[in-house]
Nucleic acid binder design. Structure first.
Lengths: 180, 180
DNA sequence: CCCTGTTGTCAACGCTCGATGACAGGGTGA
DNA sequence: TCACCCTGTCATCGAGCGTTGACAACAGGG
């Protein structure tokens, strides 16, 4: 199950999953019905996003919560899988795309937009795209220069970037600087 | 060739390429040597990133140039392929990862860092991760809410986000707002 | 003319994949 | 005891993949 967070959908074979679980391939398939169904169940189990908007949080709190989904609490623990890794690892797989798109839209973009006073949902999608890029890049490439930045600083950079993306006033030209 | 910009490396079979070129599968393989070599050649041909740092541009110019790689000049033209699509489409494919990582690091991150007065390369990687997230998200999901934003505005949002990410003064708490 | 290299095609190989169907143990309730 | 479902294995299927070798057509140079 955790495998889907470590490698893309297409690279995760039923045989890998079966081996990790110590059972036969056929059983994995029979227990869930299909590979896509396993992926969907893994998303539901490992990415419980329903409570992310609990308590009608304000924008900053919401972004803080979303960043929780991106950073491991304890990187030493193999089983500490962050939901966003599950979402971003398989973004590019055609089979998993629809499932992921639904999660992104309903479980993240809508609550985020609401937390910013029903801001333009497109802006929420924009912010989330930045976030997913960061998660993917860090997880896949793990550029040494980026990893050299202390995790707390990385998180602060990310939170600020998302905050700026969501605040129209901030995003449209900061400090007098304007896009050319 | 253009296929690699439209779907991930793993979804692009030699048979697809051969069919698009109107030749036999075996010939495609024989002409290039291997699938990975085709991909590398496609990157070199379609993503000429060497001149992106020509003339020692300042930060804003550099970001402007990089955004050029993300937005289609003429979306109606099938053959108008943006280099960044080639880079981001196959980020998650294990076979293509190393090739792409090299392009990102040497052809984009380093010049970007240089354009900002030899800023922390980690910060350049951070900015590029946001960029690749935007490109991927937009190309793959194409959320209606995001596409509803005029392309000029999208571009401005993206440029501002990258600018903020590169400027330490801006990124670490804008307008008095600080990450929790 | 022959020799050689290029441009292609064809059939096939070995491999991995997701999916299926047959079947075996092992509890559990009637 | 018998029937029944759940758990799990085994062998196998058909499809798609990258790759390979044999071979044909054709040109250019000597």
């Amino acid at each position: 199950m955790l495998l889907f967070a470590r490698m893309p959908y297409s690279d995760t074979s039923l045989r890998d999953i079966a081996a990790a679980a110590g059972v036969d391939v056929a059983y994995v398939h029979r227990a869930f019905g299909s590979k896509a169904e396993i992926f969907r169940q893994a998303l539901l189990a490992l990415a419980p996003l329903d409570d992310i908007a609990a308590g009608d949080p304000d924008g900053a709190t919401m972004i803080n919560r979303i960043c929780d989904l991106a950073f491991l609490r304890d990187p030493r623990k193999v089983e500490d899988v962050r939901p966003l890794h599950l979402l971003t690892q398989s973004i590019l797989c055609s089979e998993a795309r629809a499932i992921i798109a639904q999660f992104f839209g309903t479980s993240l973009a809508l609550p985020l937009s609401r937390a910013f006073g029903h801001a333009d949902p497109g802006r929420a999608h924009f912010a989330l795209s930045l976030l997913s890029g960061f998660v993917t890049h860090r997880a896949i490439f793990g550029p040494a220069d980026l990893l050299a930045i202390p995790e707390a600083d990385q998180r602060q950079m990310l939170q600020t970037a998302l905050m700026n993306a969501m605040l129209p006033g901030c995003s449209d030209g900061v400090f007098g600087w304007r896009p050319i």
